[in-house]
Computed example of a mutant assay.
Amino acid sequence: MANGGVLISQDLSCAGQVSSSVALPILGASGMRPTLLPTAILSTHTGFKDNTYLDLSGEMPKIVEHWRKNKINFDALYLGYLGKNALDFWLQNIDQLKRDEQVVLIDPAMADHGKMYRGLDEEYVAKMQKLISKATILTPNITEAAFLLDKDLTEVTLEKAQEFANELTEEFAISNVIITGISISKEKIGEVGITENKNWSLIQEKLPGSFFGTGDMFASAFLAAVMHGNNLEKSCSIAADFIRLAIMNTDQDPLFGPNYAAGLPWLLQELEK
């Protein structure tokens, strides 16, 4: 067997530091030997108007078949933004790529700020509900958690997020759920988690500004920390501090995302501890 490291499956935005554009360098620098199964190529992420979109779902089965012939396997699967056709692919093929004792991180990137992303709908949510049952770790934001549970998001609090995390664990039989980016106030942001029936929460200073790609950066740094042997609460703390450092050192247009490169030296030091 040839070890392909961590398999990342999400879109590639040609401009803007989001999705695969941040997952590849963060996981690569962390020694995870990332392999990419791209779902689509976009001219930019959807925060820009009128972006182009090339669906690659038709190529995905051919790529996976080539890997199968070459007996390439993976230490972890990391699924981010998929899109409708790629979601169908993963529903049909995830059992073929999963192995025992493998980390399967699903970041169900489909909504934020109470709304679905452009082009996604209730049918997408229903299919994502089926896919997440395959996850060993699920990392939705609070809006995505509400959609996955078919609930209205009436309040954004740590308590509500913890309630959602517990319900996701029970309803979908996922042992590890982390809800990220919970805007507690103008000054505070937090995460909650449930790991092996233990509830926990973290709170950080909320920095000004709104940046695209922070969720992708968080999931990538979090997975790197997990793969280096940290427990989920510690991994979450490392990822949150990494995002904070990146934002503090950002002087570019927020549409292009935080300056993740500024936080990489610190992240690599943390992973070596």
Rank of each mutant, 00 (worst) to 15 (best):
residue 176 N to Y: 01
residue 151 K to L: 09
residue 119 G to F: 11
residue 113 H to E: 11
residue 119 G to V: 14
residue 210 S to G: 14
residue 189 I to T: 07
residue 213 G to S: 13
residue 169 T to A: 10
residue 201 S to E: 15
residue 112 D to E: 09
residue 195 T to N: 13
residue 113 H to K: 09
residue 189 I to G: 03
residue 161 A to D: 02
residue 186 K to I: 05
residue 117 Y to V: 09
residue 132 I to F: 06
residue 191 E to H: 09
residue 209 G to Y: 04
residue 143 T to W: 00
residue 127 K to C: 08
residue 193 G to T: 01
residue 213 G to D: 05
residue 157 T to W: 04
residue 203 I to Y: 00
residue 115 K to N: 08
residue 171 E to F: 11
residue 119 G to N: 12
residue 215 G to K: 04
residue 221 A to C: 11
residue 148 L to V: 12
residue 223 L to G: 03
residue 126 A to N: 15
residue 118 R to S: 11
residue 155 E to C: 04
residue 178 I to M: 10
residue 191 E to K: 14
residue 162 Q to D: 11
residue 178 I to V: 15
residue 196 E to N: 14
residue 219 A to K: 05
residue 122 E to F: 12
residue 123 E to T: 14
residue 113 H to P: 03
residue 158 L to R: 08
residue 217 M to K: 02
residue 140 P to C: 02
residue 117 Y to G: 13
residue 151 K to P: 00
residue 151 K to E: 12
residue 192 V to A: 03
residue 125 V to L: 11
residue 214 T to Y: 06
residue 222 F to Q: 06
residue 213 G to Q: 01
residue 176 N to T: 01
residue 148 L to D: 07
residue 167 E to W: 10
residue 139 T to L: 04
residue 163 E to P: 03
residue 207 L to K: 09
residue 188 K to H: 14
residue 220 S to T: 03
residue 133 S to V: 09
residue 115 K to M: 08
residue 129 Q to F: 08
residue 212 F to P: 04
residue 216 D to P: 10
residue 223 L to S: 02
residue 188 K to E: 15
residue 216 D to A: 06
residue 137 I to Y: 01
residue 212 F to Q: 07
residue 166 N to V: 11
residue 194 I to P: 02
residue 165 A to N: 06
residue 210 S to M: 14
residue 122 E to S: 15
residue 127 K to T: 04
residue 119 G to L: 13
residue 203 I to T: 10
residue 196 E to C: 10
residue 126 A to I: 13
residue 127 K to G: 07
residue 195 T to F: 14
residue 158 L to C: 05
residue 219 A to M: 03
residue 114 G to V: 12
residue 141 N to D: 08
residue 116 M to F: 14
residue 131 L to Y: 13
residue 151 K to H: 07
residue 213 G to F: 02
residue 189 I to K: 07
residue 133 S to C: 12
residue 164 F to R: 08
residue 136 T to C: 05
residue 212 F to A: 12
residue 115 K to V: 04
residue 222 F to C: 08
residue 165 A to R: 00
residue 118 R to Q: 13
residue 128 M to S: 04
residue 165 A to F: 07
residue 115 K to S: 11
residue 174 I to R: 03
residue 130 K to N: 00
residue 127 K to R: 15
residue 215 G to A: 01
residue 211 F to E: 06
residue 201 S to I: 05
residue 180 T to A: 07
residue 190 G to F: 05
residue 160 K to N: 11
residue 178 I to G: 09
residue 138 L to D: 02
residue 114 G to H: 12
residue 123 E to I: 12
residue 217 M to W: 01
residue 183 S to A: 15
residue 200 W to H: 13
residue 168 L to P: 03
residue 175 S to W: 00
residue 165 A to I: 10
residue 183 S to G: 04
residue 165 A to E: 04
residue 204 Q to W: 12
residue 222 F to W: 04
residue 137 I to F: 01
residue 183 S to L: 14
residue 153 L to T: 00
residue 128 M to E: 06
residue 136 T to P: 06
residue 179 I to E: 05
residue 197 N to Q: 15
residue 145 A to R: 00
residue 150 D to G: 06
residue 143 T to H: 07
residue 166 N to P: 06
residue 208 P to R: 05
residue 142 I to H: 02
residue 220 S to I: 00
residue 163 E to R: 10
residue 218 F to W: 03
residue 112 D to N: 07
residue 133 S to E: 13
residue 124 Y to T: 01
residue 131 L to F: 13
residue 131 L to E: 09
residue 152 D to R: 15
